[in-house]
Computed example of a mutant assay.
Amino acid sequence: MIRILIAEDQQMVRGAFTSLLQFEQDIEVIAAVSDGKTAFETIEQTTPDVCILDIEMPNLSGLEVAQKIRDAQLPCKIIIVTTFARPGYLQKAMDAQVEGYLLKDEPIDFLIQAIRRVMKGERIISTDLSAVLFMQEKNPLSEREAEVLRLTNDGLTTEEISNTLFLTKGTVRNYVSSAIQKVEAESRTAAVQIAIEKGWI
């Protein structure tokens, strides 16, 4: 029996996955949760064979949960199921060595077969995503610019970033300005969002 945990914040999708997978004689859904923090805590407690993780969830994203699973060296297989075919997300999933990365518009049979195949040691990526890996743009940000954008994303002010990195506020502003130009954004917030989507921070 393959023991499954589903982490998906949309109740209808979570319920549909649970119901459809329960029809399979060799699959048992042992938990279905709605946020990343609960997902990781439940994974630690129940050690499922396969974790099916949505990317955009409250508290922790599916990618963050995947990385925590790897850092904790938990034995479960990971399948990311998402609506997003973004190169940055796919690259982060690959970096976390997930076993599957599927788009939600795939037929349920594709997910079921993916579960069985990752249990055999295979890695499964939706066909439409294969080309995405080759479409990745080169990261134009310097290490320091990326670091400033990461801290901005964490909610730090210019002054807090300058204290954290031991830089003057003027230098921090220069890095932010340079990053905005390089990613062709209109604002600091937009620059952060672009960098996240492309997997640059």
Results as ranks from 00 to 15, higher is better:
residue 3 R to E: 06
residue 7 A to M: 03
residue 10 Q to P: 08
residue 10 Q to L: 13
residue 19 S to I: 09
residue 22 Q to P: 10
residue 22 Q to V: 12
residue 22 Q to G: 12
residue 24 E to A: 03
residue 24 E to H: 03
residue 27 I to S: 06
residue 28 E to P: 07
residue 30 I to K: 03
residue 31 A to G: 07
residue 33 V to R: 03
residue 38 T to N: 07
residue 41 E to D: 14
residue 45 Q to T: 15
residue 46 T to K: 15
residue 47 T to K: 15
residue 49 D to I: 01
residue 57 M to L: 11
residue 58 P to I: 01
residue 59 N to V: 13
residue 61 S to Q: 10
residue 80 I to D: 02
residue 82 T to D: 04
residue 87 P to M: 07
residue 97 Q to H: 14
residue 98 V to N: 00
residue 98 V to T: 01
residue 103 L to Y: 11
residue 110 F to G: 02
residue 111 L to F: 09
residue 112 I to N: 11
residue 113 Q to E: 15
residue 114 A to K: 03
residue 115 I to W: 05
residue 117 R to Y: 09
residue 118 V to F: 00
residue 118 V to W: 00
residue 121 G to V: 08
residue 122 E to W: 02
residue 124 I to V: 09
residue 129 L to R: 04
residue 136 Q to F: 09
residue 140 P to I: 00
residue 146 A to R: 08
residue 146 A to I: 09
residue 147 E to H: 14
residue 149 L to C: 07
residue 149 L to M: 11
residue 164 T to N: 06
residue 167 L to H: 04
residue 173 R to S: 06
residue 174 N to K: 12
residue 174 N to I: 04
residue 175 Y to D: 03
residue 176 V to E: 13
residue 178 S to L: 03
residue 178 S to F: 03
residue 184 E to S: 15
residue 194 I to M: 05
residue 195 A to P: 06
residue 197 E to D: 14
